[in-house]
Design a protein around this nucleic acid. Structure first.
Lengths: 148, 148
DNA sequence: CACGATTCTTAGCCTAGCTAATGAGCTTGG
DNA sequence: CCAAGCTCATTAGCTAGGCTAAGAATCGTG
């Protein structure tokens, strides 16, 4: 009888190495597309999370961004200064605040999103259809893994 | 007659969106594994580049890390303080300096590498073999794209 | 209703990024 | 052959973004 656990583990280790390297490199390439309205990566990331969630409290946004609340206070402060985000009081809890992107904030996000996809989409368009099909399936699997 | 270019472009755009989202999330998860010898992400990244290249001048390392030379001076200074990197004079050009990881530097890199792979390998080991096979092929394609 | 918990912010510190400027050392054109 | 100009690394000084500690306001509960 074979040792499926052991061999699965070895395959997983090997795959983890190459996959992580590829992901890291890709991320660097994609992230170089930045200078949209002078926003820093941290500000863009926070704005993105806010855009995807619709509205969040500072605490929730800090959790999503894996950052401590005081750090998020600073970042949100910058975004608010630029009019990209608005703070409104929580309807029932006086301690809390609701953060939401403004209309300009949503526009900046959309512009950034498009720019950021451009390079990757160019690369993908140049692939063979079979390779793209593999990546379509892989993207689903990776989404699932990332959510775990 | 169909419009292969247009449809390929649409498929590539769609794929770019989901793939980038998955990659971004994965990268965040993987990057949370950090605290190896108190090194910050910037220090780890520089040490990794140095380890992969063997030896580089500060200028070269700054280029690889997509950072300005003064920034790299600071980071290398920290790594040198901890004995993870060594500066030696360039054999023929008195202006330049050669940076290389020390033995402890290589050890820290290896330890970090292993830690960083662990979480991802765990996730991958839990997948169905078919899914893992898809990712093996996808990793190759993504490596190729990242190098482009 | 008073006390503990939670939420956000402020204060103060460090790292990491930038540009501008400096000093040392190469390189080349007259 | 040497002076002018370039390149490399570093220093100085700024901003952003990360942290912990501590504070004020509010909530909730015993």
């Amino acid at each position: 009888m074979e040792l499926p656990v052991a061999t699965e583990r070895g395959a997983a280790d090997e795959l983890a190495r190459t996959l992580r390297e590829a992901i890291q490199r890709l991320n660097r390439r994609v992230r170089q597309t930045r200078p949209v309205g002078d926003l820093t990566p941290g500000q863009l990331s926070a704005l993105t999370s806010l855009q995807l969630a619709g509205a969040l409290t500072p605490r929730e946004l800090a959790d999503v961004e894996r950052v401590q609340p005081p750090t998020m206070t600073k970042i949100v402060g910058k975004l608010e200064e630029r009019g990209l985000v608005i703070r409104t009081p929580h309807p029932t809890d006086g301690r809390q605040v609701i953060l939401a992107p403004t209309e300009p904030g949503r526009a900046v996000y959309a512009q950034f999103e498009q720019l950021r996809n451009e390079w990757l989409a160019d690369q993908l368009a140049a692939l063979e259809p079979e390779d793209r099909a593999v990546l379509v399936r892989a993207a689903e699997i990776l989404q699932q893994v990332a959510r775990a």
